[in-house]
């Protein structure tokens, strides 16, 4: 690590650096549990309770700007936690918590706006917010607002992100890159106009539809947030010790996102999403799950984008339609390039 062993922004960007930090520091907290615990580094934990599973997850949210086209930090916090539960197979959240750290001077009107959008998202997800906590810190001690949500849910079958086998098909539930590009263009004041809006949404209903259609043939799920589709596929490939062959031409990307990526020199495959899932399915069930996803309003652009293969375990091979290359695991937040 450069910078005298200090934590840098790249350690929060969802790539290799962040995984290394977690493995080197926080894995020390892991203790054995009956189920899926910290050491699995999955979207959440699952603890056996009788013949069911209690799924728990927590997530702290910071975003600049706090309000962005398509959503805000409140919608993001609720959706993020509901989606993390859903990625474990728990699509019926029992309850969410909400803890907020505010900077002295934060506008009350903004806080009310954030609360309202949390409420709206929690209703969409059918996930009541049941308890919370508020702290205020001095000016400059925290940047505006940090919002933490935790969630719990019960389910009968847990889906991890490690279940791929050779031959399995990989689906994405819709267009990629929408959230990250909407936020980046605002954050860096890039002066790009166009319909770039975040996809931030709770997708537990969409995932439920996939699970109903695919049953036990749905074998791996993960939401492609920071680090985008590229990061998720590396994680799935690494944990399952398979290779992944990704068909780039099949990956849905909105025209405006593709355009903004082209102008800024960014690969949409590494851009964050907040309302999408990557789903690994046994080959025989792929079409069935795809049809179920497409029948749902949030899954109309779902597509089969890849296949688990025996070659190159842990790596992702991108077929561009013109040739093939290895897709690198993203490291750090994507930034506009000049070359």
């Amino acid at each position: 690590m450069t910078g005298g062993g200090k934590v840098g922004l790249k350690h929060g960007a969802g790539g290799r650096a962040m995984r290394a930090l977690i493995e080197e520091v926080f894995l020390g907290l892991a203790s054995p549990v009956d189920g899926i615990g910290l050491s699995a580094l999955d979207d959440g934990a699952a603890i056996r309770v009788g013949d069911r599973w209690l799924v728990i997850t927590t997530d702290s949210h910071v975003v600049h700007p706090i309000f962005f086209p398509g959503g805000d930090i409140g919608r993001l916090a609720v959706s993020g936690t509901v989606n993390d539960l859903a990625m474990m197979g728990a699509t019926e959240p029992l309850a969410l918590t909400c803890a907020v750290i505010l900077e002295e001077g934060f506008a009350r009107d903004d806080l009310v706006r954030i609360r309202d959008s949390m409420l709206e998202a929690s209703r969409e997800a059918g996930a009541p917010i049941v308890t919370g906590d508020t702290k205020v810190m001095g000016h400059g001690e925290v940047d505006g607002i940090v919002l933490n949500t935790a969630g719990v849910a019960l389910c009968d079958r847990v889906v991890t992100d490690a279940g791929l086998r050779v031959g399995d098909r990989i689906l994405v539930t819709g267009s990629v890159g929408d959230h990250g590009m909407a936020v980046m263009v605002k954050r860096h004041a890039l002066g790009i106009q166009g319909d770039l809006r975040s996809d931030v949404a709770p997708i537990n209903g969409l995932v439920r539809a996939a699970l109903l259609a695919g049953g036990e043939d749905v074998v791996a799920m993960k939401d492609p947030t920071r680090g985008g589709l590229a990061s998720v596929l590396h994680e799935m490939a690494g944990k399952a010790k398979v290779g992944v062959l990704l068909d780039e031409t099949a990956v849905p990307v909105n025209a405006e996102v593709r355009a903004a990526c082209e102008v800024l020199g960014i690969d949409p495959l590494v851009v964050a999403n907040e309302g999408k899932a990557v789903i690994g399915v046994r080959p025989g069930a792929a079409d069935r799950v795809l049809a179920a996803l497409r029948a749902h309003p949030l899954g109309r652009r779902a597509a089969i984008v890849g296949t688990a293969i025996a070659d190159r375990p842990g790596q992702v091979i991108l077929d561009t339609g013109l040739g093939r290359r290895l897709l690198a695991e993203p490291d750090g937040e994507p930034l506009p390039r000049i070359c």
């Binding site: 690969d267 991108l318 077929d319 561009t320 013109l322 040739g323 290359r325």
Partner: peptide, 12 residues
């Protein structure tokens, strides 16, 4: 190099 890599041309 970016173009060669991005479009997978090296394999071609």
């Amino acid at each position: 190099e970016q173009a060669i890599a991005r479009f997978g041309l090296r394999a071609a």
